[in-house]
Design a protein around this nucleic acid. Structure first.
Lengths: 208, 208
DNA sequence: TCGCGTATTGATCGGTTGATCAATAGTCTG
DNA sequence: CAGACTATTGATCAACCGATCAATACGCGA
């Protein structure tokens, strides 16, 4: 056994390596696959270095979840903010982000998160934070449209919870109705549009 | 160490003990807590006896999940069948069963199931079966109401998937909107009623 | 009451996990 | 170029996991 050649990097760079590896594993194989040894191997590093940078593995898992959830929120947020049309089109963009562009890997990470949070306090706290952030964001889109008179949303927060819950649940079931994604996406979009009182003509205009 | 006194039971009875213990653990602490030793201790039995009756632990987990999911389906089904009113009242009863009477422990078992199914083939198959059974049941309720003219449900299966997905997702978020259960339940009920074209007068009649 | 069939035990194995830390070796500084 | 600082290693620990099976002893039928 010849000892592996060492490469010495700056703490920041190495930390980025480790977190990047953990993130990739989470997206590929789920949060529960983010183990010390798996991360170490993927990062091309000794197991001890992972906990050296992460502290406890539970913290690493929670932080990775935060990063993944946060990034997806930002992605959808910016795609909604990029809309220069009216508030109806913003809602369409939001629903696209929530469903059509739905990333199965991210959905599974959320699923693992809910399941794992029972045994990981930090993860549980992070999960609640992220869920709240999503609620605020989605409710904000509804609220704005209601204020501008583009559609009706008397209870934006309740509707936000409903829409988020529905899309979360539906993506969990993705394994079941594999092959019916397009159909389901269209159905959800039309349903939410109906709830907001958005006429079908506006939907058609937005390529639906 | 004095050896524990043995009690000899019929295989059927002992099997029931073991499965009962596994079921209780699953409802209390989640599917991932259903381990050989935990089940053995709870059943007051040696670890070896658990696998002796269950075969592999993965099979036991899958069977336990099946039993829990199946029983809840039957509970909701019979509460809907017990309605002697019209089809609108059947839908109300269905939604009550899906949401208001929602059992958090069962919801968490479903959550664990989705998460664990990635590493447990039998569980994955059982999960798909149960999800289909729920879809069929809920779609059947909508279909019947549509046929009788009590409400409109042009695409019962798609609506069933939507409603189930929404309630699943919402129950996953239960920790987040703790304290807002009643509000959310009412909102979902009114929303689904709206989708079916059920007038608010009919809802009011059913105590909503 | 005895004996036999079998239900039951519990120690054991190989595997996984997270955490720890003395030893090692890069690399920057003086 | 020498030395010190510190990033990195990897073996090691205890705790868990599922699976196995020879040994044991319970309790029914004769």
């Amino acid at each position: 056994m010849t000892p592996a050649k060492r490469v010495r990097k700056s703490p920041e760079e190495r930390r980025a390596d480790v977190y990047g590896a953990a993130r990739a594993i989470a997206l590929e194989s789920g949060l529960s696959a983010v183990t010390q040894r798996a991360v170490a191997e993927r990062a091309g590093v000794a197991p001890g270095l992972v906990t050296h940078y992460a502290g406890r593995m539970e913290l690493l898992v929670a932080e990775i979840f935060h990063d993944i959830a946060q990034e997806e929120l930002e992605t959808v947020r910016s795609s909604v903010d990029a809309v220069d049309g009216d508030d109806v089109e913003r809602v369409i963009a939001l629903l696209h982000g929530l469903i059509r562009d739905y990333r199965r890997d991210v959905a599974l990470v959320w699923l693992d998160g809910w399941s794992l949070s029972r045994r990981n306090e930090e993860l549980a706290a992070t999960l609640v934070d992220q869920a709240r952030a999503w609620e605020d964001f989605v409710a904000g889109v509804f609220e704005r449209g209601d204020a501008s008179g583009a559609f009706r949303a008397p209870d934006p927060l309740a509707l936000a919870r409903f829409v988020i819950g529905a899309t979360d649940g539906l993506s969990a079931q993705a394994t079941v109705w594999a092959g019916h994604e397009e159909e389901t996406v269209r159905y959800v979009t039309r349903t939410v549009a109906g709830l907001l009182g958005i006429p079908s003509s506006a939907l058609a205009r937005a390529a639906y």
